[in-house]
Design a protein around this nucleic acid. Structure first.
Length: 670
DNA sequence: CGTATGGATGTTTTT
DNA sequence: CATCCATACG
């Protein structure tokens, strides 16, 4: 899309004040952002190093960077920042770590580390039946809302919150002692820093002369505050978002931030992008009519001139197995008939578990597929082990990493040794790793055990020295050989094949590190920074994509599909209790589910197929299912039902009438 | 330290 | 029903 439409041009050229771009699905928002960056550099005299664009995913950031690169010359784009919120926060913390009380080389805890730590604190100090998950979630909520442990303790309302707040306090202290931050801290700490140190804030405001934010509806309270602080005073910024695609409220995202913006910046200009360049008008009419059932602050109507297209098919299947079978078979015949590649097709579903049966059926018909999501690479044991080695190398205070690998592979260091080591470390207020090297240990431990600990310490010191001396990648490879990790992996794997696979993950991780270091244009990246990038899941995704860029049907959750598009889309499990998920119905949060359906529908370019099962086996019992209320909310004249004897059963009761009223309202408007 | 058994759980997860 | 986790036991 080389030419911009008038709305898009307006969005690109308006730079005199705060701007909100309401970008409907498929309306070319990435083009607007990238073109605007180019415009700022080439026509507004703003230097690239003073422009910051923020996204939520590494993928989006990468895509944006690449597209800007095609628009402006390399020299002009030098110093441009396009990064995720978390990466930006990391940059800030890294530069200001001293003021925040962190030492260089601090660790970033991922959810696995967090879980281990919280569970440890909880079980050691509190004998309740509070679930670790619930406490983690509560802590996350507090952090998103910028509530520190001390404040949390003051506003407790329930016994659960009391425990959570107490754990939170301990958790935060421990993180500090480990010289570590978690994902939420990457946003929270910069905000707290800016709030208390006006001089630091001013420095960063000078640096960020123009700010662009993508997927603005997904910002949470602390992210919004970070944005607000950075643009304070000058208010030179553009945020792009779509309230109808807000599907992460359960994770702390605040779509109200869109409205808040208008209140905080009364001079805010709003530009709507309503022309869709992706889907047929039938698909868009479905999307529009569905979402019209939600309340709106900003009215919006998507349209396109891509032609009517085919009707939307609604297929009723006997049960969940028939549903998967049907989809698989149809994709297969479609592929054979038209010769179109498999990767033009996507199958979307609400929950990851729905992919299981589907996988089976696809395998049975030998249809290649790509499954995104699921158990992540970083949840693998060997990856966690190696990452812990990396982290301990960079940050000796990281007791979490220390504990994970002190006895991996076997070093005959058991729990009683660690108990005593930990006691000693506690009294001396030092890290476990540091304690290993202290002479005073001899009063607590037998020399035999001290020797084992020191052997480990020497190993790590040697690797660290080697890293600093010459090729760090080579040093890490040597380390893996040195500790004979392969032997350990082989012993702990069920088969030869499994062991080989796990070792390949190990080498892949090191390869990713190497790549990260090499691909850094400025060349100033240290091994510490490269490791941090790994933890933030940057770089690795790209490599994985490159590696298995193989063709195949794309399987993913509706959440994961946001931002993508496919010629043909199947949405399966269009049932009550699944697509409006049961818990959402119970808690009266159907609106977000509707947006989820909206996101799914608007992924399709030409073909859209909705399927549901009449019966479904659940928890060992067979249940009758009824199709999703969202199907009733679509314009019935565009639907083509299949597998159902009688027509859609004159939409029952109040719900149907409501939908009908929605249709009339839409017709009247247009 | 590794395995066996029982009990709870059953959504989505950009970093 | 099936899977995952924690705990207990050998």
């Amino acid at each position: 899309m080389s030419r911009l439409n008038p709305r898009q041009q307006e969005a690109v050229h308006y730079i005199s004040g705060p701007l909100l771009v309401l970008a409907g699905a498929g309306s070319g928002k990435t083009s607007v952002i990238t073109r605007k960056i180019a415009y700022l550099i080439q026509h507004c005299g703003i230097r690239a190093q003073n422009i910051v664009a923020v996204t939520f995913t590494n993928k989006a950031a990468r895509e944006m960077r690449e597209r800007v690169a095609t628009l402006v010359k390399g020299v002009e784009a030098k110093g441009l920042t396009v990064s995720t919120f978390h990466n930006l926060g990391l940059t800030i913390i890294r530069k200001e770590h001293a003021r925040l009380g962190y030492k260089a080389g601090f660790s970033i805890f991922d959810e696995g580390d967090v879980k281990a730590l919280v569970s440890d604190i909880l079980h050691k100090e509190y004998a309740g039946d509070d679930s670790v998950e619930a406490i983690i979630q509560q802590i996350g909520q507090w952090k998103n809302d910028l509530i520190l442990p001390e404040e949390a303790l003051q506003q407790i309302r329930t016994p659960q919150e009391r425990t959570a707040a107490a754990v939170y306090l301990q958790y935060q202290r421990t993180l500090k002692a480990y010289n570590a931050v978690d994902f939420d801290d990457l946003i929270l700490q910069p905000v707290k820093l800016f709030q208390t140190h006006p001089d630091v804030l001013e420095k960063w405001q000078q640096r960020v002369r123009y700010l662009l934010v993508d997927e603005y509806q997904d910002t949470n309270a602390s992210q919004y505050l970070l944005v607000k602080l950075l643009v304070q005073g000058r208010a030179h910024f553009t945020v792009v978002g779509d309230d109808d695609q807000s599907i992460y409220a359960w994770r702390g995202a605040r779509p109200e931030n869109l409205i808040q913006l208008q209140q905080d910046f009364p001079s805010l200009k709003v530009v709507k992008l309503e022309q869709n360049y992706r889907s047929t008008s039938r698909i868009l009419q479905c999307a529009n009519q569905l979402i019209a059932n939600n309340p709106h602050v900003f009215e919006k109507q998507l349209w396109s001139d891509m032609g009517h297209g085919d009707p939307i098919r609604v297929i009723r299947c006997r049960n969940e197995e028939a549903e998967c079978e049907r989809i698989a078979l149809e994709i297969l015949t479609q592929h054979l008939r038209t010769g179109r590649p498999y990767n033009e097709v996507a199958i979307l579903y609400r929950g990851n578990h729905q992919a299981k049966l589907l996988e089976l059926k696809l395998q049975h018909h030998q249809i290649p597929y790509r499954l995104s999501g699921g158990t992540s690479f970083f949840a693998r044991q060997e990856v966690k082990d190696l990452m812990s080695y990396f982290r301990l190398l960079v940050n000796p205070d990281d007791d979490n990493a220390f504990l994970r690998i002190i006895n991996v592979p076997r070093r005959e260091i058991g729990s009683s040794t660690l108990e005593k080591l930990s006691q000693y470390a506690q009294t001396r207020q030092i890290s476990l790793y540091a304690a290993c090297g202290e002479l005073g240990l001899s009063t607590h431990l037998d020399s035999r055990f001290i020797e084992r600990l020191q052997r480990f310490r020497h190993l790590m010191e040697r690797v660290r020295y080697q890293c600093a001396q010459d090729d760090p990648i080579e040093a890490l490879r040597d380390m893996v050989l040195d500790i004979d990790y392969e032997n350990w992996v082989t012993q702990n794997s069920s088969s030869e094949k499994a062991a080989a696979f796990r070792m390949s993950n190990v080498w892949f991780l090191i390869e990713a590190l190497k790549n990260t270091l090499e691909k850094d244009e400025e060349g100033g990246m240290t091994i510490e920074q490269a490791i941090a990038k790994l933890v933030l899941r940057d770089m690795l995704e790209r490599q994985q994509e490159e590696q298995d860029g193989a063709e195949g049907v794309q399987l993913m959750t509706l959440h994961a599909s946001k931002g993508l598009e496919f010629p043909s889309v199947y949405i399966m499990g269009m049932e009550e209790e699944i697509l409006p998920h049961r818990s959402s119905i119970e808690t009266d949060c159907v609106e977000e589910e509707r947006r989820l359906a909206y996101v799914g529908i608007t992924r399709a370019r030409h073909q859209l197929t909705l399927t549901f099962a009449a019966k479904r086996k659940q928890y060992g019992e067979v249940f009758d299912c009824s199709h999703s209320r969202f199907i009733d909310e679509l314009p019935q004249e565009h639907l083509q039902w299949e597998g159902q004897e009688e027509a859609p059963a004159e939409v029952k009761s109040a719900r149907g009438n409501e939908a009908l009223a929605g249709i009339r309202a839409l017709l009247n408007r247009s």
